[in-house]
């Protein structure tokens, strides 16, 4: 993940920060509840909005962006409601999932039009800066209709960034991008987050979220299932044993010794090492070096196996 931080944040000026608040927000369509009593606060940094298809991510994003009225609860940006309040768009940018662009314009014309609609003092300079940020300089004069899906997506991001918003909401921003473009977009989101912007992006692809953000908001069936750093979330799931892979100079002897440790629920001896199930993350990781030392065994590798976002996510969805 550190590789993503190679470029300096110099092209993204520091900004005053904004906070997006959702207080008891629900949204229903007839009898169908799309979003159910969600409360969250988004501050500076990059947050991933994660959930399976149909979990209510897009509905939630639309409410945050002022494109849908909450059936109950309130969505506010720095205390101001986002619904029926176009003034919030001075501080908020949105990249919606739908691939909708004015195909008859060039990227430059499109981004410049956005800058002018924002009444920016120097729209041409703002448009050029936004196009530079997404690296679309080479194709900026061509009609958008001739672009690939990834290029259109970058153009849309440039248009959403042209007024340098404090809050940027992106719905499935990596769709249609090739791996290089994805890396570039991830790096850009990181730089924006590091510069104090509040960035929220939704995705149903775990690897994307894992690479861009440690902080996640997990939606499952319209509810906010978990919120925070996913590694911390995992450690709070005390009803699920933590799985570790341990390799040592004497796996069999270590297995025997570990079985006497109260925090260990089970040990499996495999060809590549031990798979240890521990009930208490902290107690086990403190006990292991002590046990190894006592038995004269050297631990070569200790890997938490289910601390990936994928396992955290599957535990949440199954729950």
């Amino acid at each position: 993940m550190t590789a993503l931080h190679t470029q300096p944040a110099a092209d993204v000026p520091a900004a005053t920060t904004s906070t997006l608040d959702l207080a008891g927000v629900s949204r229903w369509y007839g009898n169908v509840v799309a979003v159910n009593d969600v409360t969250m606060r988004l501050g500076p940094g990059v947050t991933g909005l994660l959930g399976p298809n149909g979990a209510g991510k897009t509905t939630l994003l639309h409410m945050m962006a002022g494109f849908l009225a909450p059936s109950r609860g309130a969505v506010t940006l720095d205390g101001e409601p986002t619904w029926r309040n176009p003034g919030v768009y001075r501080r908020l940018g949105l990249v919606s999932e739908r691939e909708a662009v004015h195909t008859f314009l060039s990227a430059y014309e499109f981004v410049l039009a956005s800058a002018k609609l924002h009444r920016l003092p120097d729209p041409e300079a703002a448009a050029r800066r936004a196009i530079d940020l997404v690296e679309m300089q080479d194709a900026q004069g061509r009609r958008i209709g001739t672009y690939s899906k990834g290029m259109r997506q970058r153009t849309r991001v440039a248009a959403a960034l042209v007024h340098d918003p404090q809050v940027l909401l992106l719905d499935e921003p990596f769709n249609g991008m090739d791996p290089r473009q994805r890396l570039h977009m991830m790096a850009l989101l990181h730089r924006l987050g590091d510069a104090g912007r509040t960035i929220l992006f939704s995705s149903h692809i775990l690897e994307e979220v894992e690479q861009v953000s440690g902080t996640v908001q997990v939606m499952v069936a319209g509810r906010l299932a978990a919120s925070g750093d996913y590694r911390t979330i995992r450690r709070l799931m005390t009803n699920r044993p933590h799985v570790f892979t341990v390799r040592s100079t004497d796996d069999r002897a270590l297995a025997v010794a570990l079985m006497a440790e109260p925090s260990v629920g089970g040990v499996e001896l495999g060809r590549t090492g031990l798979t240890v199930k521990a009930g208490d993350y902290g107690a086990f990781t403190r006990a292991l070096p002590r046990i190894a030392l006592r038995h004269g065994i050297r631990v070569r590798q200790l890997l938490p196996e289910d601390e990936s976002l994928e396992s955290v996510f599957s535990y949440l969805v199954e729950a």
């Binding site: 908020l92 949105l94 909708a100 662009v101 924002h118 248009a159």
Partner: peptide, 15 residues
């Protein structure tokens, strides 16, 4: 219909 209206609506313009 084609969704491009969102680009104009995400601007701080009185409607």
């Amino acid at each position: 219909d084609d969704g491009t209206v969102v680009h104009i609506l995400t601007k701080p313009l009185p409607r």
